[in-house]
Structure formats: C-alpha cells, structure tokens
Design a protein around this nucleic acid. Structure first.
Lengths: 205, 205
DNA sequence: GGTGCCATGTAACGCGTTACATGATTAT
DNA sequence: ATAATCATGTAACGCGTTACATGGCACC
C-alpha cells in the first residue's frame, strides 16, 4: 500500500502526469528502491477506481493528468496522522531464515550468520560511502528526503549487524558448538549485552 | 518467497502434513507474525507445482503428507548459503512516508515523526516485556528460534527509534521550524551523532 | 526516413491474504 | 444429538512486478 500512499502525497502539491510522479518519487526515495514506471500507471488506475484520484486530459492532450479527490485527501491525512504499526510491515525474511535455521537439524546456523554478517557489513560500507560521496545530483544540494532514506538504511543495516552478533553470542551460549579447528572457546567469551544499547525510556518525554 | 523457503526448511527434518507445518512455523517464528493456515496449503500446492516438494497420501488417509524433492533440497541449500540482499527486501513504508512527508508541502513532518516515535516506543516496551515474561510455553523452556526473532524485533524497533530521533535533529537543522508555543530552541540543541553508534569495521574480521 | 530514447499506457503473472467449504474429533 | 473446535483443503482477490505495445520527439 505504500506506493499508493506515496503517489497521493506527491499529488498533494498539485496535479501531475504519471511520468512526473515516477521521477519525483525516485528523487525523494532515491535510487535504492527503483520504482518501475508501469507500477505508477497501474497504481494510478487503481486509485482512480477507488475514487482517491481523478484523471483528466487537459485541452487536446492525449495523456492523463491526475489530481487528488476529497476522499484521497482524507486518506492521505489519515496516513500521516497514524503511525506505521508492526502489523503493517511484511515478515522479515532474514529473521525467518535464522529462526528456521536454528530450528531445523542439519543446518549450520553459525555459517548462515557469518555469511549474512559479511554481506550486511559490505552493504553498510556501501551506504556509508554513498552518504559521504553522494552521486551527481540534479540540483546542487542533496535532497533532504533522500538523506533521510539513506540514513534509515544505514541505521537498519547497523542494527541488523548488531543483531547478528547478538545471535552469535546467543547461539554460542545455547549450543557450545565444536569450535572449527580450534580449542573450544572458554564459556563467557563472545559476550553480548542482553539489551539493545539505547535506553527506550529516555526519549519518551 | 520467505514462507515457501521456510516450509522447505521445516520439511528438511522429514515429511509433514500441512497443519503440522503451520504449528511448527508459528512456534519458531512466534505469534508476532501469525501465519494463516490457508497460506500453508496454497504455498505447498505451488511448491509441488514447481517440483520442490511432493505430496502423497499414506495408506488409506485422505490428507496429503509432503516431502522434499531433490530439487527442493537444492533450493533450500541455496537459500541458506546465500545472504539476504537489500534487493530481496520490500520497501520500508515508514522510510517512504517520512521521505514524502519531508518532500510534500503542507505536511507537518515533525508531527509525523513524533507520532511514530511514541508508537515505536510503545512497541519496544511491549517487546521488552515479552522477553522478560514470555507467555506460557508448550515445553518448559522458551524456544531458541523464538528468542532470536523476538530479539530481532527489539533491535529493529530500537534502531527505528534512534533513526527517528536522528530525523528530528536533521529536520531541525535543515528547517529551523517555529517552535510550538515556546521560544525557539537554541541552535545546537537536539544534536544527534551523524553516525550510527557501533563501528562497522570492528566486526569485519 | 530511419534509429534512438522519452513518455504513456495495457496485459498478464505470482505471491500473500482472506473467505469459504468440508470432514474429523471432542465436549456437553 | 448437537455444538464446538480441529484439521484440510479450495477459490477468489489485491497489489507489486514484468513484459509488451504504442505514440511523440530528437538528431543525423
């Protein structure tokens, strides 16, 4: 549903053509999540079917220019006023993967964790590089929205990394696995704090 | 695709009936992401269509028991050996929402951030409570897989919270917004570190 | 007047989800 | 007996995605 809402948000500033929406959406969201053009048109068609937008062809043009309806404006306001809940988000494939790797016999969970750790690490480095050296931007300065998205990816990748390390610790404690070609590590090593670092309460205000 | 892979993983330990798979999947993944029963059967049907599993009815039973095929075993091994990449994951609705809230005029981004911060905070507290006091478990001890999943949710919620605070700082710096019914805060307050806390390099080995 | 590319759409597919339709088993 | 719940499926829908099918416009 997020693409539909996103298009509604862009339409709030005035009527647009389909391609325009694609461009603006990608500019805001960045090249990280490429948005297929076709998606824009299909989504617009469905939004029109649901009465959220209305498409009209100005004067003699063939192409359609879409604008928000009153209903669409309501929907949009609701989207911004209500928080995104856990139920809105899709299942995290990585969490499922590790959970089942830990469950199923005959799977080397530690190896799975290691592989993922390396990959996530590389992704994080790439993201950090991107932040330090943003590509050529159309306007002079980098878009604020794009910065926010990029930071989101960085924070999430970093949390994933910490979680993976935490998993290693948990697994080591739960299963004193035979160390690979080395004497078994002393129990108590590889300790990881049981809580995420920041204090939740502190920001409650 | 993650559900299909998950079912394959569960089937690795031997042939199962549909309902059995639902129960085991939920036990591993926890009640956080309830898995509809119907999904199991439809997914199994599609997996059979693709030659990943085979369903046979033992002796005189009407119901089908599924087992992995050689191809399914390969797929599963591939899933575990390759990391989850960014491309595999769906777009994060919250990131899109904030990016577009920052882009579109006439939207109070700060308010959106605040609403989300409160909600995420509550979710994190609920998750922490769950970890401290897990519900009645079938077996005596809490399942390892469930612990991992729960920790994942906690780490992610915590990262989201930090990102939201980071957004506040960024927005304050970018747009010295009129403070709501209070003298404008001195610039330099609400400072947030520009980097996620942990050092990426440290875990590269 | 072709050879591109930009722009606008349409058609079809796949997966996750929901709702519905039944047997089997147990409770009262 | 009948109600309730467990267990096993089937059918249909919606959204995201991909592939295809065209028009306009440059530019050589």
């Amino acid at each position: 549903m997020s693409i539909a809402h996103g298009l509604l948000a862009l339409l709030q500033d005035g009527p647009r053509y389909g391609y325009q929406l694609r461009v603006e959406f990608e500019r805001a969201t960045g090249s990280t999540w490429p948005l297929n053009v076709g998606q824009v048109y299909t989504t617009l068609a469905r939004l029109e079917r649901d009465g959220q937008v209305a498409g009209h062809a100005p004067d003699g043009e063939g192409r359609l220019r879409y604008e928000l309806t009153a209903s669409g404006r309501e929907t949009l306001a609701g989207w911004f006023s209500r928080p995104v809940t856990l139920g809105d988000r899709p299942r995290d494939e990585l969490a499922i993967k590790l959970a089942l790797a830990a469950t199923a016999a005959g799977v080397d969970v530690r190896a799975v964790v290691q592989v993922q750790r390396v990959a996530t690490m590389q992704r994080l480095q790439e993201l950090t590089r991107l932040k330090r050296d943003p590509g050529p931007t159309v306007s002079g300065d980098t878009d604020l929205a794009w910065i926010l998205v990029l930071d989101n990816l960085r924070f999430m990748a970093e949390a994933e990394l910490r979680w993976l390390e935490h998993c290693e610790g948990t697994l080591t404690r739960a299963r004193p696995a035979a160390a690979t070609s080395a004497p078994a590590p002393a129990p108590g090593s590889d300790q990881v704090p049981d809580q995420p670092s920041a204090d939740p309460q502190e920001a409650l205000r």
